[in-house]
């Protein structure tokens, strides 16, 4: 009887040990790749980005009508060639981006010590509207190119994307017909083949 008890005890210990080993072997190994990304349709993306841009713009937009500017941006008689391009609904997309770039270049030298404005679309638009050190409005708040949230928009109504590598560098990108940035139909100014040279 005692022998049986000893054998059973030894067997219990062995089985217990085996269980511990198996449990250790089955412990989950650390994941080394990112988990699956949430899936969104293009329509979801458009709705989401519109909402983010709208919220940010509402919080940050500049009110040109109450600002004390040194000029009257609504006085069309004083418009530069670039401002006329922006004011004309018939201007092509490339012409508009070129005009914005030229106006930002003027602003850069006039009030920013040679640096391009950077940040979200609404902040760049604010700078052109008159939120700048020289208190000059470069575009009117009622420009057909500015949407209801105070953002400069492309032909399809998407806010331009302003990307600054540095003070001397700026790329203006429009999302194109699909209204999604970073897709094949994006249009850049200056064109990428120029900036990549």
């Amino acid at each position: 009887m005692r022998k049986v008890l000893v054998i059973v005890s030894v067997l219990c210990v062995l089985v217990g040990g085996l269980c511990v080993i198996v449990m250790k072997l089955e412990r989950p190994t650390p994941p080394v790749v990112a988990p699956t990304v949430r899936v969104e349709t293009d329509e979801d993306k458009r709705a989401r980005t519109d909402e983010y841009n709208r919220r940010a713009a509402l919080a940050l937009r500049f009110d040109q009508s109450t600002a004390r500017l040194l000029n009257d941006p609504l006085d069309r008689s004083q418009y530069s060639e670039e401002m006329l391009i922006l004011d004309n609904p018939a201007s092509s997309e490339a012409e508009v981006k070129g005009a914005i770039f030229a106006l930002m270049s003027s602003l850069r030298y006039l009030s920013r010590g040679g640096s391009f404005s950077a940040g979200l679309n609404v902040e760049v638009t604010n700078a052109l509207l008159g939120k700048n050190a020289c208190k000059v409005g470069f575009i009117p708040a009622d420009s057909p190119r500015i949407n209801e949230y105070g953002q400069l928009v492309d032909d399809y109504g998407s806010p331009y994307w302003f990307h600054s590598e540095g003070a001397n560098d700026l790329t203006i990108t429009s999302a194109g017909a699909d209204r999604l940035l970073h897709t094949d139909d994006d249009e850049h100014y200056p064109p990428l083949e120029v900036t990549q040279q």
């Binding site: 950077a118 600054s164 540095g166």
Partner: peptide
């Protein structure tokens, strides 16, 4: 409201890299 001195070239790569490396954000 613009009532504080901000680092130059906010949100631009080269300017911000410069400030991380020089440790001076007042002016370029």
């Amino acid at each position: 409201d613009g009532s504080v001195a901000l680092p130059y070239g906010l949100f631009s790569h080269n300017d911000q890299i410069e400030q991380w490396q020089v440790s001076y954000s007042t002016s370029k």
